[in-house]
Design a binder for these strands. Structure first.
Lengths: 212, 212
DNA sequence: CTTGACATACTCACTAGTTCGTACATTTTA
DNA sequence: TAAAATGTACGAACTAGTGAGTATGTCAAG
C-alpha cells in the first residue's frame, strides 16, 4: 500500500490531494464558491495551482470534491449512534445533543451547506455520492417515535422528517446565522452558558411537542 | 417630492435608484456578493453602469444599499403588528404565523441574510442603519410571555430572544435550506400542504414548550 | 543489479477572457 | 449658465485555465 513515507519528500499524491482539499475547504467555506480564489488556495498549499487542475480539473470540480468530502464526514458520524436500547425520550435527547454538538463543532460544514443553498444545490444534484446519502437519521428518528407512541410516552404521531427538520433548523441556524443574529441582538451565541441553555431548549421543545 | 412623471422620460433620479436597487437585489440574492456582476446588473436596469457608480460609489456600496433596504422593509412589517389585545397563546400563534409567512414570501431577504452571514456580517456591522434596528419583536414577545406567565397559561419563564430564535430558526431554515434539504429528503418544502403542517408544528412546539 | 522504458507526479511561465471602475463627452433641469 | 444626471468607450488588474517540459518511482529485460 505504501501508506506513508517518512523521509522521501516527493511524489505523495494522496497527501497532496488531501492538502489541497483541506486548504480549499477553508477557502470556500470562508469566501464562497465565487469568492474563493484558486490562486489563494494554491498559495496556501504545499503544491502549485497546476496540481489543483491536474487532480480536480476545474474550480467547480474542486468545490464539488470539497463538498463531497464534507458530507462523507458527517455520514460516518450519524451512522454509529446506538440509540435503540435507550428509552424513547432519552434516545431523542442524545440524538438532539449530537446534532447540536456536530453543527457547533463543524462551522465549515454548515457554511458549505449555506453556500450550496445559494447555488440552489446545483452541485449536490450533480453528485451521486451526495444524492445517494443514506439518510439513516430518519430511520433512527422513526424508530424512536414509534417506540414512544406505542409505549405511551409520546401522545402525537409525527413525521420523522419533520422532526428532523425541527431539530436541524435550530442547530443549523445557531451556527449559520451566528453573525447577523449576534449583531442584531448583541449576543454571542458561542458562549458556553448560552450553548447549554439552547441545547436544553430545543430538546425540551421537541419533547414537549411530542408529548402534547 | 415629484413622485412620478407620466410623460417626461428623463432625469428621474429616485426612480433610477429604485430601479438599480431592485435589479441589484435580485442579482446579489441569486449569485451572492462575489458572484454578482455589476455589468449584469447594469444591463438589466433602465440605465447604465455609470449610474450605479454615480449613486452607489462601488459594488460594495451598492450591496450595502440593497441590504439596508431589505432590512428596512421587514422592520416596517414587524412594527405594525397589534398583539396586545389577544390572549397570550393566540398572540404567539399570530406572531409565528406572520414570521413564517414573511420568510416564505421573501426568499430574497432570506438569501441576502445567508450571504451576509458568509461574510461574517461585515457589511451589517458597518451600517448604522441596520445595527440600530429597533428590534421590536423582542419587546412584543417579552410582553406576551409575561402575560402568559402571570395569567397561568405558560408554566415556564423563557428568554424572549431565545424564543424568537426558536421561531426564526425554523421559519428561516425552511427557506434558506430549501434546496439541500429538499434534495436529500426528496421533499418539496414549498407545497401548500407541507407549509401548513410546518406552520402548525412550529407553533405547537413553541407553545407546548412554554406550557411544559 | 543495472539499464532503460513508461506512467504518474510535478514545475514554471504564460494567456485569453473577465470584471470593476473611470475619463470624457453630452444632455437635462433649475 | 451652473449643476445634476446620464451615456459611451476604455483600461488596469485580476483570474481561471493551459502548454510544454521536468522529475520521480516502478518494473521488466538484459
Amino acid at each position: 500500500m505504501a501508506a506513508k513515507r517518512e523521509n522521501g519528500r516527493k511524489n505523495d499524491p494522496q497527501r497532496t490531494q488531501e492538502n489541497i482539499l483541506d486548504v480549499a475547504t477553508e477557502e470556500f467555506a470562508t469566501h464562497g464558491l465565487a469568492g474563493g480564489r484558486v490562486d489563494a488556495i494554491a498559495e496556501k498549499t504545499r503544491t502549485s495551482k497546476r496540481m489543483i487542475y491536474y487532480y480536480f480539473g476545474s474550480k467547480e470540480g474542486l468545490y464539488l470534491a470539497v463538498l463531497e468530502r464534507a458530507y462523507r464526514k458527517i455520514r460516518t458520524l450519524e451512522e454509529d449512534l446506538q440509540l435503540s436500547n435507550l428509552p424513547p425520550e432519552q434516545a431523542l435527547r442524545v440524538l438532539i445533543s449530537t446534532t447540536f454538538d456536530h453543527d457547533e463543532a463543524n462551522p465549515d460544514f454548515v457554511r458549505l451547506v449555506s453556500i450550496e443553498n445559494i447555488h440552489h444545490a446545483a452541485h449536490m444534484l450533480r453528485s451521486d455520492a451526495i444524492r445517494d446519502l443514506n439518510v439513516s437519521v430518519i430511520e433512527t428518528i422513526a424508530a424512536i417515535l414509534a417506540r414512544g407512541v406505542t409505549g405511551g410516552v409520546f401522545a402525537r404521531t409525527a413525521d420523522p422528517i419533520d422532526i428532523h427538520m425541527l431539530i436541524s433548523a435550530f442547530c443549523f441556524f445557531r451556527v449559520s446565522n451566528r453573525y447577523t443574529f449576534g449583531t442584531i441582538f448583541r449576543r454571542d451565541l458561542s458562549e458556553p452558558a448560552t450553548m447549554e441553555r439552547h441545547k436544553g431548549m430545543i430538546a425540551d421543545a421537541v419533547i414537549s411537542y411530542l408529548k402534547a
